[in-house]
């Protein structure tokens, strides 16, 4: 519980972060920037879980535990994504989306 700050302000903040992430995912043209946008989405939900647990249901730790797992899984996800991107970079020397795309229907 933080003095002087209600749950509404924090939830508004996380929602804004979430939509910045979605916007970035759609508009960015660099694979690494897209990955960063995904991280924003993940972290918005991590903060959501902790805050909801702390403000609304302080007697159980379900939300906090959930957020720990999300952080661990997000790290694994990023590591895998970066390794695939590095492999792609070795072949084409670029991480720009428009140079990546070969397949078009």
């Amino acid at each position: 519980m933080i003095e002087g700050i209600s749950i509404y302000e924090i939830l508004t903040l996380t929602t804004i972060i979430f939509f910045i992430g979605v916007y970035g995912f759609i508009t960015r043209t660099n694979l690494i920037s897209i990955l960063i946008s995904v991280e924003l989405i993940m972290n918005a939900s991590v903060v959501n879980f902790v805050i909801i647990n702390k403000y609304l249901y302080p007697d159980m730790l379900q939300g906090v535990l959930f957020s720990l797992f999300i952080i661990a899984v997000a790290a694994a996800e990023t590591a895998l994504a970066v390794s695939i991107i590095i492999n792609l970079y070795r072949q084409i020397g670029s991480v720009e989306v428009k140079e990546t795309e070969m397949m078009k229907n």
């Binding site: 979605v22 939900s45 959501n48 959930f66 795309e101």
Partner: peptide
């Protein structure tokens, strides 16, 4: 190269999907 491209597309869309899904779960938890 085509295989790497498939991998990048799959991992990025899967990460976005699970992120969006998590945000939904946090609301259901609320």
């Amino acid at each position: 190269r085509i295989s790497s491209e498939a991998g990048v597309k799959l991992i990025l869309s899967a990460a976005l999907a699970s992120g969006v899904s998590l945000f939904g779960i946090s609301m259901l938890y609320a």
